[in-house]
Simulated assay, not measured.
Amino acid sequence: MPGPPKGPPHGSADCSVRAMGALTASALVAVTAHTVALGGDGRLWFGWVVLGLLTLATAVTRS
């Protein structure tokens, strides 16, 4: 009967990627609400895109 898979533990890495994903999703909601209420601001959208790319890069490198 085979044992558990060998390799580095991924518990903390998965947690950090999930936290970054939640932050990115929350930032999207906030930027969208700001755009609806006060009009668009390119700097906010650029910041959200950078955050999204960082989250994506972290998820790819951790998996």
Score class of each variant (00 low, 15 high):
Met1Phe: 10
Gly3Trp: 01
Pro4His: 13
Pro5Glu: 03
Lys6Arg: 10
Lys6His: 06
Lys6Gly: 11
Lys6Trp: 03
Lys6Val: 15
Gly7Leu: 01
Pro8Trp: 01
Pro8Gly: 08
His10Val: 04
Gly11Tyr: 03
Ser12Val: 00
Ser12Ala: 05
Ala13Gly: 01
Ala13Pro: 00
Ala13Arg: 01
Asp14Ile: 02
Cys15Leu: 10
Val17Met: 00
Val17Leu: 02
Arg18His: 09
Arg18Trp: 07
Ala19Asn: 04
Ala19Lys: 06
Ala19Asp: 10
Ala19Trp: 05
Ala22Cys: 11
Ala22Ser: 12
Ala22Pro: 00
Thr24Ser: 11
Thr24Val: 09
Ala25Phe: 07
Ala25Tyr: 10
Ser26Phe: 12
Ser26Cys: 13
Ser26Trp: 11
Ser26Asp: 14
Ala27Met: 11
Ala27Val: 10
Leu28Ile: 03
Leu28Phe: 08
Leu28Val: 05
Val29Phe: 14
Ala30Cys: 10
Ala30Ser: 12
Val31Met: 03
Thr32Lys: 11
Thr32Cys: 09
His34Glu: 12
His34Pro: 00
Thr35Tyr: 05
Thr35Gly: 06
Val36His: 02
Val36Pro: 00
Val36Lys: 04
Val36Met: 09
Ala37Cys: 14
Gly39Ala: 05
Gly39Glu: 04
Gly40Gln: 12
Asp41Met: 03
Asp41Thr: 01
Gly42Tyr: 06
Gly42Met: 09
Arg43Asn: 07
Arg43Lys: 10
Leu44Tyr: 01
Phe46Tyr: 05
Gly47Met: 03
Trp48Ser: 01
Trp48Leu: 15
Trp48Arg: 03
Val50Gln: 07
Val50Tyr: 03
Leu51Thr: 00
Gly52Leu: 06
Gly52Val: 03
Gly52Thr: 09
Leu54Ile: 07
Leu54Gly: 08
Thr55His: 05
Thr55Phe: 06
Thr55Ser: 09
Leu56Thr: 09
Leu56His: 04
Ala57Glu: 06
Ala57Ser: 15
Ala57Met: 13
Thr58Met: 13
Ala59Glu: 02
Thr61Val: 12
Arg62Leu: 06
Ser63Phe: 15
Ser63Asp: 09
